[in-house]
Amino acid sequence: GGRLVPANRAERGPLDRIFARIGASDALAGGRSTFMAEMTETANILNNATDRSLVLMDEVGRGTSTFDGLSLAWASAERLARDVRAFTLFATHYFELTTLAEELDAVANVHLDAVEHGERIVFLHAVREGPANQSYGLQVAALAGVPRSVIEAARRRLAELEARGHAHIEALPEPAARQMGLFEAADDRIHRALALLDPDALAPREALEALYELKRIVDDD
């Protein structure tokens, strides 16, 4: 099957199939949530893609909790790169996934360039090497027409969440802080840090900060 190509001649590459997991929408008629639809499409790709397939993945894992989503996105990207070895474009806002490029030779990070001017932003749509160094969620919301008062409230809330995210890890209760001795094993320190966290009370950014701190504990050991 296929479609008519409006050309006198064409050379087809070695691709056997093209898979895409892009977009987010509930399948109400079928009783499927956005996340179930996303996982069904992801499962189809992971089970059927080959090393001759082109795979397009967009924001895998965004339809569930932060840790679940990050874990699923990581495992899916790793399988595609390490086992399936399909040519894959994997778009994500999970910055942690960029470290896969350090572990797997077949993985490389790129980002789309943007220029900020005051509180405004212009997307240049130019591909640059390396991971992005920040997110532009508030700027995009402003471009979309979200009221300025809401943007300002979101900016204040963001600052609070970032501060609380650091506090959840850094401001440990005094007894626990005293017990974290210089020669304490990393797994013990991680266990104690996790015991002090309440996952249900963490906002996404707070959870991300907590994850960074846990990684720092491992790296420092």
Rank of each mutant, 00 (worst) to 15 (best):
R3L: 03
R3I: 07
R17E: 00
I18L: 10
F19C: 01
I22T: 11
F35K: 01
M39P: 00
T42N: 11
T42S: 12
N44M: 14
N44A: 15
I45D: 00
L46A: 10
T50L: 01
T50G: 12
S53Y: 00
E59A: 05
V60W: 00
R62P: 01
R62D: 03
R62M: 02
S65A: 14
T66A: 14
F67T: 13
A73D: 01
W74T: 02
S76K: 02
A77C: 05
L80H: 02
V84C: 03
V84T: 15
F87Q: 12
T88Q: 04
L89H: 06
F90R: 00
F90W: 11
T92F: 00
Y94H: 04
L97N: 03
T98M: 12
T98R: 11
T98V: 14
L100S: 07
A101W: 13
E102L: 11
L104T: 09
A106F: 02
V107E: 03
A108E: 15
N109R: 10
V110C: 05
H111N: 15
H111I: 02
E119W: 07
R120N: 10
I121Y: 07
I121T: 09
I121P: 03
F123I: 14
L124T: 15
H125C: 01
R128A: 10
N133Y: 12
S135E: 09
G137K: 00
A144S: 13
V146P: 14
P147F: 08
R148K: 14
V150I: 13
A153S: 13
R155V: 09
R156Y: 07
R156E: 13
E160K: 15
E160L: 15
E160S: 13
E160W: 05
L161D: 05
L161M: 14
A163Y: 06
R164P: 00
G165R: 00
G165K: 01
H166T: 07
I169N: 09
P173I: 03
P173H: 08
A177P: 01
R178K: 14
R178M: 10
Q179N: 01
Q179C: 03
M180N: 09
G181Y: 07
F183P: 01
E184I: 10
A185R: 14
A185Y: 02
R189W: 05
R189V: 12
R189M: 09
R192L: 13
L194H: 07
A195P: 06
L196A: 06
L197F: 02
A201L: 08
A201M: 08
A203Y: 10
E206W: 04
E206K: 13
A207K: 04
A207S: 10
E209A: 09
A210R: 01
A210S: 08
K215L: 10
V218T: 15
V218Y: 15
D220Y: 11
D221A: 14
